[in-house]
Simulated assay, not measured.
Amino acid sequence: MHRTYSMRQSRAPTASQIQNPPPPPSSTKSGRLFGRGGFGHALRRNAAGAFGPDLAKKLTQLVKMEKNVMRSLELVAKERMEVAQQLSLWGEAGDEDVSDVTDKLGVLLYEIGELEDQYVDRYDQYRVTMKSIRNIEASVQPSRDRKQKIADQIAQLKYKEPNSPKIVVLEQELVRAEAESLVAEAQLSNITREKIKAAYTYQFDALREHSEKVAIIAGFGKHLLELIDDTPVTPGETRPAYDGYEASKAIIQDCEEALTNWVSSNAAVSAKLSTRARTLSTRRRNNIKARSEGLDLSGQDVPLNDRDSWVAAGDHKGEEYEEESDVDDQAHSVLDSDNGLNGTEQRGRQPIAA
């Protein structure tokens, strides 16, 4: 019986690949100097932060650690495909239903391995984008060092030679160095925000596609398992003839079609925010948008064109004002009385008799 190890002999671009073309192969798939073992991982992780500018050391170590992750993913993908082939070879000697189902399960597992290999390529997009932030950090470090060096020289001269004419020259250089550093720091801030959003968008999009497709394969794999008759038999009893070849083939074809037509807009899993989280997130986005575009106050003092809602002062009823004046007169009469409020005597100087 012919054993199959891959779902498709000739691979046409899937819908998601047409919508989002795949990146070039990962840089981790070639140029192995220390092999696949843990020694190379440990060496990259520990040596990454020992060299280079101080500002870029932490991100350099992160990038090297991500390279270890990618090499591990690559190894998992390769071993997954080898396991799929071995499963198919093991089931070949079994009964017809076991042989057919294990063959098709090997096809699905091999497909997962190939998806993991594609995921490594997309994961590399994230890592390369993070490397660009590291490069900017490394370029900003010299301006920081120059500014600090000049400041130290000024402090040293002021301590040893307070009246040295070099202090004025160095202070002018410090002003220029601070201006250059200010520009560099602003560029670093802007590029960091831009690149970190792009980098993790690459990673989460790749992870979402990979996870959704693996979930699709897992679902069809469980459908394949239903074709195995696990009804117990007594010794000497023969099982009915297996008639699921067409069904297993149809399941594989349906799985292939589902994977080919998958696009991110039709993803089954969606992250739904709670009302509180959605409100706070919307408020944050609106604040960012307002700061970038500026606040529009043009409609704050819009003139009222509805003249019918206005009534002239002379057109009001006189009784209303008379009632208010009566209240005011009563209040003044109480305050001006000899006893004052609540019958108490007014305090103050007594008039002097003439």
Rank of each mutant, 00 (worst) to 15 (best):
D54W: 05
K58Y: 13
A77I: 01
K104R: 14
G106K: 03
S88I: 04
V76L: 14
A56I: 12
Q61C: 09
Q85T: 10
P53H: 03
K104Y: 07
S99K: 08
S88F: 03
K57C: 09
P53D: 12
A77M: 04
N68R: 04
T102W: 00
K57D: 06
P53Y: 06
M65Y: 07
L87W: 06
L73D: 03
D54M: 05
E74Y: 01
D103K: 06
T102H: 00
K67W: 00
L75M: 06
K78V: 02
S88L: 07
R71T: 01
K104P: 09
L73F: 02
K64G: 13
E82G: 14
G52Q: 02
T60W: 05
V98Y: 03
A84F: 03
G94M: 08
E82S: 15
M81D: 06
L89H: 05
E96I: 05
P53C: 05
D54L: 08
A56M: 15
L73R: 01
D95N: 09
L87A: 08
E82K: 15
E96Q: 10
N68C: 09
L59G: 07
L62K: 11
D100R: 06
E79V: 07
E92M: 14
L59I: 15
G106V: 02
V83C: 14
N68E: 07
L73K: 01
